[in-house]
């Protein structure tokens, strides 16, 4: 079927149904490919911040470097905004809206828990954050009906929580580095799936 619908021609019933089906699929693909960009962006940022903070803590033993986590949304949100402005504005559908809200909720939880942890440092903060990260990832996989993402989220959430219980100090940050990798991989899977 030709890409341009310039002719406004009359169609048979089958042609009309084919056109509807093709348009719906193209539209869905375009929207979900756009969501993939955000997974890649936040995954890369999480990976980069985890490794940088891990190295800084490892070298200096100064816990104040943990405050650098707050720079992640400061860097991430303008970059995400810039990504949204680049090219044609892609609309939201039910799935992309749900993905947007679940990750926004995770971000709010992570920032709020981190602020509380600044005053009363709980030993379980990594466990909490990584379990929530895995949950958000798993839920994203369910929305996208994608088994690798569902399994990746489960491994990240449950596996990451177990590792967080077993390892201490800055080594826990490597759990987030793994989380960043899985998140970026999710973006790449979605991008490939809807190409």
């Amino acid at each position: 079927m030709e890409n341009s619908k310039e002719q406004n021609k009359e169609m048979s019933a089958q042609q009309s149904l084919d056109l509807i089906s093709e348009t719906l699929n193209n539209n869905r693909r375009c929207i979900l490919q756009n969501s993939a960009k955000h997974f890649i962006l936040w995954g890369t940022l999480l990976l980069a911040f985890s490794i940088v903070i891990y190295e800084l803590l490892h070298v200096t033993r100064d816990l104040h470097w943990m405050l650098l986590w707050f720079a992640m949304p400061v860097v991430g949100f303008p970059l995400a905004r810039l990504l949204g402005k680049k090219g044609t504005a892609v609309p939201q559908n039910v799935i992309s809206s749900q993905l947007h809200y679940i990750w926004l909720a995770y971000c709010v939880f992570a920032v709020a828990i981190s602020i509380v942890a600044m005053f009363e440092m709980p030993s379980c903060i990594t466990l909490l954050l990584v379990a929530l990260l895995g949950f958000a990832e798993c839920y994203s996989g369910l929305l996208l009906k994608n088994w690798p993402i569902i399994i990746g989220g489960f491994i990240l959430g449950v596996g990451g929580a177990v590792v967080a219980m077993l390892v201490r100090s800055e080594a826990q940050l490597l759990v987030f580095a793994a989380g960043g990798l899985i998140l970026a991989a999710t973006g790449l899977i979605v991008k490939r799936q809807y190409q």
Partner: peptide, 21 residues
């Protein structure tokens, strides 16, 4: 009509869409 049907098929699956899209 081909073009109007295509426009409606896009709009039925999204919250809203701009002209450029």
């Amino acid at each position: 009509s081909e073009l109007r049907l295509a426009v409606m098929s896009i709009l039925v699956g999204v919250d809203e869409a701009d002209f450029t899209y």
